[in-house]
Design a protein around this nucleic acid. Structure first.
Lengths: 155, 155
DNA sequence: TCTTGACCTCAACTTAACTTGAGGAATTAT
DNA sequence: ATAATTCCTCAAGTTAAGTTGAGGTCAAGA
């Protein structure tokens, strides 16, 4: 459908750089919710380009799809998000980014001060204590210290 | 073997907070290389606590196991790493950390300036252009734009 | 009109990073 | 000495995030 205000999945793929299969997959995860034509083809809003761009950026930051989905629930479902919608949502998201970045910077600095320190008493080594269960989330050994799959805490 | 200078896998697990199974798995990936007793049990050096702590921290930064393995190859294999070994290696690693952090900060700032901008012309939206194939590595759609599995570039 | 390219669904495969379990041997504790 | 732990290997299961392919429908250009 060239020249319409809606996009076919192929057009959306081209605009975002995503594979068509990835977009379908994202739909199953609730990241986009296209309408269907009579014949069952997906029609996307132009705003979905932005939604998917956001997904890509958030992934770059290491957020999982379910975390991103949780974040995006703050955008309206039925109408195209307005500038105000995006602003409110991104203000909230920015907190998570800041926290993530701060965590990484702190970790880098600990690494800096500690990794070359040669201390063999691991008791008080900052690096040794940096990888606490509290910090660790999203990567590393999955079922660590009672951190079981059902511990559902989105973001 | 309590009171020896080597550690059993269980002791190492306790010291690092890792599951025993995870340590065995890491061995298959070359992250640790324990020796064996006559009867076949693994014996770890105390320095392996540090190696594994490093692994945990690096994972926290979003590095994959093979990337970490590549990085750790700069440590000596047979003797326990000295302070100098760790320093040299971590100096090198720090470059990657800095790059990663800078990338995230830049992305956050773009997000900041862009996500609420309301521009519908995606052509020149910074956010839209931020998720380029160049930036994207490690997460997101895997086989994107010729970024095929055989493109072996460690770290 | 007809055919070629875009779409559709659904099931199965892939990779990373581990975990779980079965079946058995070696240590440690009582 | 015997029971309870810990350890071993190897195969198979798990989750996330997609990809691939088969079999079939729909639409847009020559």
């Amino acid at each position: 459908m060239k020249g319409t205000d809606t996009l076919s999945i192929g057009e959306l793929a081209e605009r975002t750089g995503l594979a068509v299969s990835a977009i379908r997959f994202y739909e199953t995860k609730g990241l986009v919710a296209p309408v269907r034509t009579e014949s069952g083809q997906r029609r996307f809003m132009r705003a979905d380009i932005r939604r998917l761009s956001f997904v890509l950026v958030a992934q770059e930051f290491g957020f999982s799809i379910s975390e991103i989905a949780a974040q995006m629930e703050k955008l309206p479902d039925n109408r195209a998000p307005t500038k105000a919608d995006w602003t409110r949502m991104s203000r909230d998201f920015r907190k998570h980014l800041d926290a993530k970045i701060e965590g990484l910077v702190a970790l880098r600095d600990k690494l800096d001060g500690c990794i070359g320190c040669g201390c063999l008493s691991m008791k008080k080594c900052q690096l040794y204590n940096a990888g606490d269960a509290a910090n660790r989330h999203g990567r590393g050994p999955r079922y660590l210290m009672g951190d079981r799959p059902d511990a559902s805490d989105e973001l």
